[in-house]
Design a protein around this nucleic acid. Structure first.
Lengths: 247, 247
DNA sequence: CGGTCTTTTGAGTACAATCAAGGGTTGTGG
DNA sequence: CCACAACCCTTGATTGTACTCAAAAGACCG
């Protein structure tokens, strides 16, 4: 983790973009100099505790923004209460839709989370004037679309075991930089995993137990996983072990 | 159907955009005059018969484009052959990804289909220079993303009956303009429906039979459906009957 | 008319959901 | 420091939905 702590800078209204941990991966990555200044002039930081609701389905949001630290989830619901997580937002991911204030998703902090928020109107104006920025956002949106479609394959065709292995492989992939053995602290409860995977809590728990007993993964407590053999995990996920597109 | 037939115009290399049936809904909708001219200068039409493959997973595509008439599908596969449809492209929908030639999806003509193709390089150059065009494409991509996420809810949480009802409601919604009773010719075989819904052919067939026996829908042959009471179909789809977001 | 492809229907099975209970961890207040 | 509550996770027994395997009926075409 970085020493950048925008939550501590709230009284200053902003922190220095140069020190920002997502500076070169977020929507702002394509901007420099005056453009970056312009973004900075409309930004503010805000933090939520794990479990807190950031927005409800149908809320009109006055901001769009980027995840700076932590993890947030997007969830869609049916009237009878069934829920499906439709997005998992990690640092640098973009939140909100330019041109449409009302969010069709419930947004919840999965862990403690800090967002870098841009006022909607000025941001939308800038999008129309700065091709750099809009093409960066287009690229990120297309990446999200590909990821959502990849996840449709997981939801529609994989078994419970494969689903769980896919999610763990995904998290290991994004969390662990170059560690051997690979390890990660899960940012999700069993309930959140079930919500993402289209399963029940009990089934998620059983499949994690099974992967552990198989020797495919190891656990330290309930929330830290280790994997000595990523190709074995990918095979359990229904992918070939060559490392391509683990979900 | 319109009298616009670009397939017949192939020898002329292009048809008149003013007569195009998707002129005001496709990616070109935001362009007029010189901009439209520029798009027209890089376009060509091409048609495929139902069942033909337009592109394989991993193919490098020299074009992007719009569906003019007919219906195409995007499909992702696992190594063992399991397949999941991840996109259903109807007239005006955009195909291909600017900035990335290699497609991660198999693209197949579900019915006879005609595409309006733009050469990739000139189109990408124009995207960077014409904010109109790039913001239109961004808007369409975000719509696709929302649709993909809506579909994740269907795949992850709905029962077989609800899935089938959701798809039929969707198709009726897009196909039937203002007809009472609502009717539509299904552009998909049972196999393609199963692929989209994360089900087997047999289950799709059984659920259609059940909806028919319930009186929720009527059939004329296997490929034409009629619905006298859309709210009953939406209820079967697990939505409330008020007409919002039928999938 | 024969052939192929699509769709329907039936019988049996398997996998994940449901219902139910108990263990583990964390944090709070007595 | 311990007791208790709340939450999270695991495990077990049973049920039900959708899958698999199998066959036949209907549509379409040469």
């Amino acid at each position: 983790m970085s020493h950048f702590d925008p939550a501590l800078s709230l009284s200053l209204a902003r922190a220095d973009c140069a020190a920002c941990p997502i500076r070169h991966r977020a929507v702002c990555a394509s901007c420099e100099g005056a453009e970056l200044e312009r973004l900075a002039s409309m930004k503010s930081y805000r933090s939520w505790k794990a479990g807190e609701t950031i927005a409800l389905e149908g809320d009109a949001l006055a901001h769009v923004g980027s995840v700076v630290t932590g993890c947030a989830t997007l969830t869609r619901s049916l009237e009878d209460g069934r829920m499906q997580m439709v997005g998992l937002l990690l640092p640098s991911d973009f939140l909100g839709r330019p041109g449409r204030a009302v969010t069709p998703y419930e947004v919840v902090a999965a862990t403690d989370v800090t967002l870098c928020l841009f006022e909607r109107k000025p941001f939308e104006r800038m999008l129309g004037e700065v091709p750099n920025l809009s093409s960066r956002l287009l690229e990120m949106s297309l990446d999200e679309l590909d990821a959502a479609r990849d996840w449709m394959l997981v939801l529609g065709r994989k078994t419970a075991r494969e689903k769980v292995a896919s999610l763990l492989a995904n998290i290991l992939h994004r969390a662990a930089a170059a560690d051997r053995p690979l390890w990660a602290e899960l940012p999700l409860t069993r309930e959140a995993m079930a919500s993402y995977l289209g399963l029940t809590i009990e089934t998620v728990s059983r499949q994690i137990t099974r992967l552990r007993k198989d020797g495919t993964i190891r656990l330290e407590g309930a929330r830290v996983i280790l994997c000595d053999d990523l190709s074995a995990l990918l095979e359990a996920a229904g992918e070939d072990g060559d490392g391509t597109s683990p979900g």
